[in-house]
Nucleic acid binder design. Structure first.
Lengths: 142, 142
DNA sequence: TCTTGACTTAGAGCGCGCTCAAACTCGTAG
DNA sequence: CTACGAGTTTGAGCGCGCTCTAAGTCAAGA
């Protein structure tokens, strides 16, 4: 598989794939006779996992640590596991943090909802012909 | 309250407070006779809310939109609410994404746990004097 | 044979969100 | 009076993670 094909399948750009190889996140790819990279499809599994680490906010320097352990192969399982367990904890903490913020957002949005309700109630007390047209906004709101 | 005090109380650095003012995230602060910023403690509430937006991954350019609506005051509530509702959706999506990744991490970590268990089982089949010392690691693991 | 387009490399550039530096002004304590 | 520490401004610099450019190679199709 050439780099363009891998790019399509992985969702990365060819630029990014080369960049990842340069920094050591992807193993050095075998080249064909004209020095083009030729990939085994199994690389997709690794790229997908790297994507998970990235999605969960792991910095590249930590992914590199993991990639190095992986390259060293057997004997590094305990370290790899420990690294992932530490990361999992940080992701859980992040989820908790986001959920806490969601509660604050709910409250804030609820406050605006109340404001709107009070405005509707107020409008309803006005004589028919003085009510604001539906969808009306204040002049400054453009 | 001077900027140093506000920095302490808000958790931002004085540098960052000035930067936020420069870009419009914080309102222009009143200066005392010797042009030092003098803050009303109520600014802390706003800074804390900005912190929530930041924590939840809102880019500064969007916080600026919200800050501008806030500055314009009444008549912008519906827009502010809509902005926060859109943001809340993106945060919820992010939480879902993180939870999905957590499942993958669980599986991966579970795989390493199995490997370790198989190694322990294997060690247990060896004669007493040939067992690895507790905590032993393979030579390459340094 | 010629052209096209996908690839190669090394290295420069970019957008984000700060973070720091330089040169200066004040107000207060010793 | 002097020295210090905390503040002021403008603008440069930084770390991250890409993203793009330039100049070149190569293979396949018209």
């Amino acid at each position: 598989m050439k780099i363009g094909e891998l790019a399509k399948r992985s969702g990365l750009t060819a630029h990014t794939i080369r960049y990842y190889e340069r920094i050591g996140l992807l193993p050095y790819a075998d080249r064909d006779r004209s020095s083009r990279r030729d990939y085994d499809p199994s690389i997709l599994v690794w790229i997908e996992f790297l994507g998970r680490l990235k999605t969960t906010g792991m910095p590249i320097r930590d992914m590199l640590l993991y990639a190095e352990l992986r390259d060293r192969g057997s004997g590094t399982e305990a370290e790899r596991r420990a690294l992932l367990e530490r990361h999992r904890e940080s992701v859980r903490a992040r989820v908790d943090e986001l959920n806490a913020c969601l509660l604050v957002l709910d409250t804030k949005i609820g406050g605006y909802a109340e404001t709107e309700q009070r405005m509707k109630d107020y409008d309803a007390t006005l004589p028919e012909r003085r009510r604001k047209p539906v969808g009306a906004r204040s002049a400054r709101t453009r």
